[in-house]
């Protein structure tokens, strides 16, 4: 009896051992770097040599760095003009796809495909489509008697091109999430509405849209976070140009840190990014319906 009791009191270490591999990786390669990143942002760290403490001067310099300020503006423009079309189109397609017809999964697969494709490959595809000399878009324009456009080489059209690429890749994701949301809407509501004589447009705005609010909120947060981190197609298709019209926050972080080796300064940009994204994620946790069941 006493033996059993003492056994009961001994701490079982098995749960810790089970936690250890995953947790240590997470702790060492995500948690520790975050704190290091914050520390670096107060130094003049340049990869070689010891970081020297410089107080807030990196942050003060950020406020005067016209390129960084431009990149914030570009990122915000990109975010607004990708998130809205992604959500509207995603909902529109999901709604049409939610009707029962047999070839559904083929069409769904075709729409979702860009999301499986790497951004590098996506960029290559669109580089050709946008190519001024032999690209598809200019070929179409010329065949209807228009002159070609310089797309990625023109400061006025470069950002819209980057935006189109972003939307093309993400619409499928939004469609899938909205489809799941739509399937949770009870069919009986529509039947009642039909009896009451509500048309399908009316049904959409007074049943579907309100009931999809949690899904919409989730996608809004997710898409915003993702758009804010835009880098790959910028890096490959325009490298921030022409005239810095497409440089974004992450593109600036990458350039400053790994091409100029101003790692302390780049860290202060990263801290700003962390702050924005952590806030968005936190809001999702706090106000998003489904994902907030923490204990």
């Amino acid at each position: 009896m006493t033996k059993q009791k003492s056994k009961h009191h001994r701490l079982d270490t098995t749960p810790y051992f089970m936690l250890a591999p995953g947790y240590l990786i997470y702790f060492i390669f995500i948690m520790v770097p975050v704190f290091y990143g914050i520390y670096y942002s107060f130094t003049n760290y340049a990869f070689y040599g010891k970081p020297g403490f410089v107080g807030f001067s990196n942050y003060r310099y950020l406020l005067k760095d016209s390129l960084f300020i431009k990149s914030i503006g570009n990122t915000v423009v990109y975010t607004v003009f990708t998130v809205i079309p992604q959500m509207v189109l995603g909902l529109f397609i999901a709604n049409a796809l939610n009707k029962s017809f047999r070839t559904k999964s083929i069409w769904r697969g075709m729409i979702y495909m860009p999301n499986v494709t790497s951004m590098v490959a996506v960029s290559m595809i669109w580089l050709w489509l946008f190519d001024p000399a032999s690209g598809f878009l200019n070929m179409v324009l010329r065949s209807i008697g228009q002159s070609g456009i310089d797309w990625l080489y023109n400061p006025d059209t470069a950002m819209p091109c980057i935006i189109v690429v972003g939307v093309w890749k993400v619409v499928g994701y939004n469609m899938i999430i909205y489809l799941a949301g739509l399937q949770a809407v009870p069919q009986s509501l529509y039947e009642v509405a039909q009896i009451d004589g509500a048309g399908s447009v009316r049904q959409f705005f007074s049943i579907t849209l309100p009931l999809l609010k949690p899904t919409t909120f989730f996608l809004l947060v997710m898409n915003t976070i993702q758009s804010f981190q835009v880098f790959e197609q910028v890096s490959i298709m325009t490298n921030g140009g022409p005239l810095n019209t497409t440089t974004t926050i992450v593109h600036q972080i990458y350039t400053r840190a790994f091409l100029d080796f101003k790692m302390g300064y780049a860290s202060s940009m990263a801290v700003i990014l962390l702050f924005v994204i952590a806030t968005a994620t936190f809001l999702n946790f706090k106000f998003g319906g489904d994902t907030s069941d923490v204990d």
Partner: peptide, 26 residues
């Protein structure tokens, strides 16, 4: 357990780009 789990939740808020520079050094 509670503390360890809340640290995980904090990790959910961290974008990859923020850890790049220290990770490279590590």
């Amino acid at each position: 357990r509670g503390v360890l789990f809340y640290l995980i939740l904090i990790g959910l808020m961290v974008p990859e780009q923020v850890t790049l520079i220290p990770l490279f050094k590590m």
